[in-house]
Design a binder for these strands. Structure first.
Length: 379
DNA sequence: GACACGTGGCG
DNA sequence: TCGCCAAGTGT
């Protein structure tokens, strides 16, 4: 690994910031200096690309202009504003932190990374980003860009998939951060990481900091960063139940302990939950249907006849799970009451007013394809 | 420390 | 279709 002298550090800062001042991106959250704007953008940008975030950010700030507005927003409004961004606990945590700011901090922002980390959903990266960008605290914001950029510049071969590696990078970058412009320094590193020093197809040849790039001079750019691979997503078969009555479609809201919590979907039943361990191998679709109609339907006080919807299943892949959803349709002539289900009968044109996860949109599209025409209103 | 947690883009 | 990546945090 390389070591930089004080002279090199000063030279690097000057080169980096001159480039950033001339070529840095003009992003909506970079207008003015507002900790609320910085915070919202940083949380949205967690594991999410800039181009995806921009429209969500604009809409979010327009819908919830201040911390106080966010703190008192109806949950459905919040989840709808976040729909499609993913990692939905970020939205709930954002609101909880807004409530912390109002009640515990009386609307007065804490200004150091250490204090900011006490906000729910604000970890070491986001705390440092807010502290440096909005409050000029001299701390490195160590995100994926910083890992990638500095691992290449200095040929640091520590495995960035390991949690303790963060501290190593923090310690290495800390003395390099420009004490006069820490926020600009951190954002410049991010712009570098999304332009010349990308993960795939980097262009270190034309990078403004090429002469500081040890991995480039060694011809080993793509050897950095070192990162162990994540395990493959696990296949989980589901049944998706499309139950239609005169009052509309049956939608259920996902529970607080579940994935996608707070969002609405057709009832989803894990295939494995219908089959007992010993005979899981011999189970058939007919047996599953019978179990669904007897056990599941009785538990929820419904009487229905489920028909498999032919054709391809709906497939949706998450970071750690791969869902294969077989759709089943039931047509009811009367509308049962829903005493035992966290569900609602929703008319076709009202479904898209609810916050819906991507897998639900895929199930609706598959169903529309089956019936041969549009059923649900465009979002 | 390991794992859960969403979605879209790209080769 | 598949694998990997993108401004991480909570448990």
């Amino acid at each position: 690994m390389e070591q930089w002298s004080n002279e090199t550090i000063v030279d690097f800062r000057r080169t980096l910031l001159a480039w950033y001042d001339a070529k840095g991106r003009d992003l909506p959250w970079r207008h003015g200096r507002n900790p609320y704007h910085t915070w919202i953008s940083e949380v949205m940008l967690q594991q999410t690309q800039v181009q995806t975030v921009i429209p969500y950010y604009e809409n979010f700030i327009a819908t919830f202009p201040t911390v106080a507005d966010l703190a008192q927003a109806p949950e459905a409004t919040l989840l709808k504003a976040w729909q499609g961004l993913g990692y939905y606990s970020r939205a709930r945590n954002l609101q909880r932190a807004a409530q912390q700011l109002v009640t515990d901090y009386h609307g007065q922002w804490p200004e150091t990374a250490t204090e900011l980390e006490d906000l729910i959903g604000v970890g070491p990266y986001t705390a440092s980003a807010i502290a440096s960008i909005a409050f000029d605290q001299v701390v490195p914001a160590v995100d994926g860009n910083a890992f990638r950029v500095f691992s290449r510049l200095l040929m640091i071969d520590a495995d960035i998939a390991k949690p303790k590696t963060r501290q190593l990078f923090t310690d290495i970058i800390q003395p390099i951060v420009d004490p006069k412009r820490p926020g600009a320094f951190n954002q410049a590193i991010m712009d570098l990481g999304s332009s010349y020093m990308t993960a795939k197809n980097p262009d270190p040849e034309h990078s403004p900091v090429r002469r500081f790039d040890a991995s480039y001079h060694a011809g080993r750019v793509l050897d950095f960063p070192v990162k162990t691979k994540a395990p493959r997503p696990k296949l989980i078969p589901y049944y998706g139940l499309i139950v239609h009555s005169p009052a509309g479609y049956l939608l259920v809201q996902r529970g607080s302990q579940e994935m996608l919590s707070g969002y609405w979907s057709f009832p989803l039943v894990k295939q494995a939950d219908l089959r007992d361990e010993k005979h899981a191998d011999e189970a058939t679709e007919e047996m599953d249907l019978a179990t669904l109609q007897e056990k599941w339907a009785r538990e929820n006080q419904l009487t229905l006849t489920l028909q498999p919807l032919g054709g391809r299943q709906v497939s949706h892949t998450y970071t750690h799970q791969r869902w294969q959803v077989k759709l089943l349709v039931a047509e009811l002539t009367t509308t049962p009451t829903l005493d035992f289900l966290p569900g609602r009968w929703v008319t076709a044109d009202q479904v898209t007013a609810l916050p819906l996860p991507k897998v639900q949109e895929k199930m609706m599209a598959r169903y529309e394809q089956h019936v041969g025409h549009a059923v649900f209103k465009e979002n």
